[in-house]
């Protein structure tokens, strides 16, 4: 019993880690076809905002919310000044976002030094028999699921979602129906950035808050995105985090974190070999049409 719980917990934390790392990237790549190499640094800014606020007395939950909006604003600025000049030019956009990532990380180092005061993990820990767990990670698992549900609602049940899906699928036709596609792109980039900031703030208590902290999330985030594919962003996010954690968890438990990550990488490679368009295309073909 304790063993089963422990495996489920490990699976849940792995999946939540991947989902939170990837969610902002998924929105921007899936909707705008922009590979945002500054994703990790946007997460870093979220953690920085959270840490600064937390240590000036703001409750942690409020820090997380503010991080979302603060980094969303950073996203708006980036999109207006830079990114919008590179729509439809994926490679150039990639180089530009890489430049942004270097500037943001170096800037944080120069402005705030090698690290910021850390945030203690909220909520403490619980035990069931011999199995012990962190309530905070349970909260992160629930939040990750809520975020996906929220995204689903936004994209499939609101006017913004209708405009965004239309813009993504046939931009000119959306324009010819009156959709202000430039605004849709700006808001999408803001949303993806804000989600990166939110995830950074949520991860902040679990790690060292430092200029290059974003890098630990970027590789898993990209693996998640590539495995999911962009046919259906939400199905892809859920499918690929589930699949990758399923591959990772047993190896993490038996052989440790490093081998777990290797197993996840291999699983991703095999899957992409078999389903080049990603898991979401397969899910869509199989169940959603």
């Amino acid at each position: 019993m304790d063993g089963v719980l422990s495996v489920l917990y490990q699976f849940g934390t792995n999946a939540a880690f991947l989902l939170l790392s990837a969610i902002g990237l998924i929105v921007i790549l899936g909707m705008m076809n922009i590979i945002n190499l500054a994703h990790g640094e946007l997460m870093m800014i979220g953690a920085y905002v959270a840490s600064s606020l937390y240590h000036s007395g703001v409750p942690f939950a409020a820090c997380v919310v503010v991080s979302f909006f603060a980094v969303a604003l950073v996203g708006v600025a980036l999109e207006r000044v830079l990114i919008r000049r590179f729509y439809g030019r994926e490679l150039q956009a990639l180089v530009v976002t890489w430049g942004v990532s270097l500037i943001l990380a170096q800037g944080a180092l120069l402005a705030f030094g090698p690290f910021l005061a850390s945030i203690p993990i909220p909520f403490g820990s619980g035990t069931v028999g011999t199995f012990s767990f962190s309530w905070y990670w349970i909260a992160l698992i629930v939040l990750a699921l809520l975020l996906v549900a929220g995204l689903w609602f936004l994209y499939y049940r609101t006017a913004f979602g209708l405009r965004a899906r239309a813009t993504m699928q046939e931009r000119e036709m959306a324009q010819a129906l009156g959709v202000k596609t430039g605004r849709v792109y700006m808001l999408t980039f803001a949303l993806g950035s804000g989600l990166a900031g939110l995830a950074g703030a949520l991860m902040a208590p679990t790690t060292t808050i430092a200029p290059y902290m974003g890098q630990q999330y970027v590789a898993p985030a990209f693996i998640t995105v590539v495995t999911g594919g962009s046919a259906n962003v939400i199905a892809g996010a859920l499918g690929s985090t589930g699949f990758l954690s399923l591959a990772e968890t047993p190896f993490t438990i038996w052989f440790g974190t490093f081998i777990g990550i290797v197993a996840m990488l291999l699983a991703s490679l095999v899957l992409i070999r078999l389903l080049p368009k990603g898991l979401s295309e397969w899910i869509q073909r199989r169940w959603l049409s």
């Binding site: 209708l162 699928q169 000119e172 036709m173 959306a174 009156g178 959709v179």
Partner: peptide, 26 residues
């Protein structure tokens, strides 16, 4: 201006109903 392009240009991954809704939205 109501535009019906050559080659149709439906929103292929959206439902028929959502294709119509976007026509009324703006």
């Amino acid at each position: 201006f109501g535009y019906v392009p050559q080659g149709r240009m439906v929103f292929p991954h959206m439902s028929v109903e959502d294709n119509l809704r976007i026509g009324a939205l703006e």
